[in-house]
Measured scan of single mutants.
Amino acid sequence: TIDDAFRAIERAIQAENEGRYREALKHFLDGGEMIVTAAEKEASQKVRNLLLHKGKEVLEWAEHLAEWILE
């Protein structure tokens, strides 16, 4: 659900702030994927587009974090 997705993102932010970057990455990926999944089930085109945009933002952040971890 969207609530689960945002809880995962909150955990990711907390982990990132505490320097637990790999854990943060996992939570960002989980949250982003949950948002995209919820968007695919959404009946309203406007809400679907907003959710897809937010999911994409979260997944892009996860990608940047992963690249930073690997440096």
Rank of each mutant, 00 (worst) to 15 (best):
L50M: 12
S44E: 11
E71G: 13
A8F: 13
G32L: 15
D3Q: 15
E16T: 14
L50I: 10
A39M: 09
E40H: 14
E63R: 15
F6C: 13
N49T: 07
M34F: 05
A38V: 08
H53Q: 14
G55D: 02
H27D: 06
L50T: 07
E33V: 12
V36E: 03
R7I: 07
L59E: 01
Y21R: 03
G32V: 15
K56I: 07
E16S: 15
I2L: 13
A5W: 09
S44P: 01
A66K: 11
A66W: 13
L65M: 05
L50S: 07
A5K: 00
K46W: 15
A15S: 04
Y21N: 01
L50N: 05
E16M: 15
E23A: 06
R48D: 01
K56P: 02
V47T: 08
F28H: 00
H53L: 15
I9L: 09
K54I: 15
E71H: 10
L25V: 10
H53Y: 08
K26N: 05
A8N: 05
M34V: 05
I13H: 04
W68T: 03
R11N: 05
E63L: 14
I69G: 02
G19R: 04
E40A: 14
W68P: 00
G32M: 15
G55R: 10
L29W: 08
A24H: 03
A39E: 02
E42H: 11
T37E: 12
R11V: 05
I69Y: 05
E33R: 15
Y21A: 01
L65S: 01
E10D: 08
I13E: 02
E42R: 04
Q14E: 08
K46H: 12
R11M: 11
K54A: 10
A5L: 07
R7L: 09
E23M: 05
S44T: 10
D4T: 05
A66N: 06
L65I: 07
G32N: 08
A5Y: 05
E18N: 08
A24R: 03
A24D: 00
L29M: 09
R20D: 05
F6V: 06
H64E: 08
N49K: 06
E18Y: 05
K41V: 06
R20A: 03
E33C: 13
T37F: 08
L52I: 06
E18T: 05
H64F: 06
L50W: 15
G32S: 11
A62W: 06
I13K: 06
E63N: 12
E60T: 08
A12H: 02
A38D: 02
S44W: 10
F6Y: 10
E10Q: 12
D30F: 14
I13R: 07
A24Q: 03
N17K: 14
G55N: 03
I35M: 14
V58A: 08
E67G: 10
A39W: 08
I13T: 03
E18W: 09
T37N: 11
H53M: 15
A12W: 07
F6H: 06
H27L: 15
T1E: 09
N49I: 11
E23Y: 03
K46E: 13
Y21I: 05
N17P: 02
G55V: 13
R7N: 06
G31N: 02
E67W: 12
G19N: 02
I2R: 03
E63P: 00
E57K: 13
E18C: 12
E71S: 13
Q14S: 07
A8L: 15
L59Y: 08
I13M: 05
L59A: 05
L52Y: 07
A38G: 04
H64W: 10
E63F: 13
L52R: 06
S44D: 15
L65P: 00
E40S: 12
E63V: 13
N17L: 13
I69L: 10
L51Y: 05
V58D: 00
E40P: 03
S44N: 14
